[in-house]
């Protein structure tokens, strides 16, 4: 395994600024993320997605430094993929291969694992999650929730220290969301999740509320979530 597994590290943003298409997105952001369960909230366009994309190098900052469990995302997303797992909003934009087994082995083979060994690990993780019959399944025959589970398993196989989830449940029904949340809450990884479903974040250790590219509030969920909700009710966005 090329990544030494660590869930104890921290993510540090040191005076990070980022602009996209000449628009400032994040300005002088300083953050230290030590907690294992961190929720990221904010209105659309507040910079949440940009912030998490800085962590695995999908975006590079204009200035400032980022440290992710002792590694610099400047090395690019390909290098960071062994340390930072990323789950996107729409599984259909994330699944690259026609069958579940191919999809799950892709990341492992990128890490230099042989095809045979990758298939063994895929069989093991499917068995562990009672989904052994999925190996040969065509991904397009799965439901949205099942596809999202495939995405999560494919990232877990790479044993990253950090898991980033960018609104992973927005297309899923409530029972599916609960099941996936149960699975995620048991993971040893450091979890950073963007969500508009505030009840999902209630059990998290820390909530960061972004507003116009800056931290607006930062604290435990029982403080930040009600304040965010109250502000959202007052706000005219249309």
């Amino acid at each position: 395994m090329s990544s030494e597994f660590s869930a104890s590290g921290s993510i540090v943003f040191d005076q990070v600024s980022l602009s996209r298409n000449a628009h400032p997105v994040l300005h002088d952001l300083c953050l230290q993320l030590n907690e294992r369960r961190i929720g990221l909230i904010g209105h659309n366009g507040s910079g949440k997605s940009s912030l998490v994309r800085l962590i695995n190098g999908l975006l590079q900052p204009d200035s400032g430094n980022i440290d992710v469990h002792g590694r610099s995302p400047r090395s690019g997303p390909e290098k960071m993929s062994a340390h930072v797992g990323f789950i996107f909003q729409n599984p259909d934009h994330q699944i690259i291969f026609p069958t579940v087994e191919e999809e799950l082995s892709f990341g492992l083979m990128n890490q230099g694992v042989s095809k045979k060994e990758a298939r063994q690990q895929v069989a093991d993780i499917l068995a562990k999650h009672q989904r052994s019959d999925w190996a040969d399944k065509a991904v397009h025959s799965l439901s949205d929730g099942q596809k999202q589970l495939v995405c999560i398993l494919s990232v877990l196989l790479m044993q990253p220290g950090v898991m980033i989830l960018d609104e992973p449940f927005s297309a899923l029904d409530l029972p599916t969301r609960y099941q996936l949340m149960d699975l995620l809450s048991q993971l040893p990884q450091q979890l950073l999740m963007i969500s508009h479903e505030l009840d999902t974040l209630e059990t998290f250790e820390r909530i960061i509320w972004l507003e116009q590219g800056q931290v607006f509030q930062d604290g435990p969920p029982d403080q930040v979530l009600p304040a965010y909700q109250a502000a959202a009710r007052r706000l005219q966005t249309l």
Binding site: N56, P77, G112, V155
Partner: peptide
């Protein structure tokens, strides 16, 4: 869609690395 797929692809190690790693494997130097 292709933008999103490219992003997802990069986030899981891209496509250039398996080639080089396979070659390294074949040479037994990995």
């Amino acid at each position: 869609l292709s933008d999103s797929v490219a992003e997802a692809l990069a986030a899981r190690g891209g496509i250039s690395s398996p080639l080089t790693q396979d070659q390294l494997h074949q040479k037994g130097s990995f």
